[in-house]
């Protein structure tokens, strides 16, 4: 099966409560919390589309949209 390729990160800023679970469990350190403690994509090019952030987000605030090459 072809590797999934990142299309976009969709973040619902109003739903994010800044717990940092997505930031911590990202294996390639793609995400950061900004000055208002909301998740933001800092290094999109490093994303390997493992969905660890999306699956564990308690606020349903992050979605990783992928496409298969």
């Amino acid at each position: 099966m072809a590797k999934p390729k990142l299309k976009a990160h969709h973040i619902i800023r109003e739903w994010c409560k800044g717990c940092g679970i997505c930031v911590h469990f990202c294996p390639t350190n793609v995400l950061e919390l900004d000055s208002e403690d909301k998740v933001t994509v800092a290094r999109a090019q490093d994303c390997i589309c493992c969905l660890q952030c999306e699956l564990r987000c308690p606020d349903l605030a992050i979605e990783v949209e992928t496409q298969t090459e």
Binding site: I12, W15, G18, P58, L60
Partner: peptide, 26 residues
Amino acid sequence: VKDYIRERFFPHMWCPGCGHGIVLNS
């Protein structure tokens, strides 16, 4: 996931980092 929720009630009332949100998600 969003097809199955009542978006009008979000953000939900659980505290930051509450595990119950992960259960809902899964």
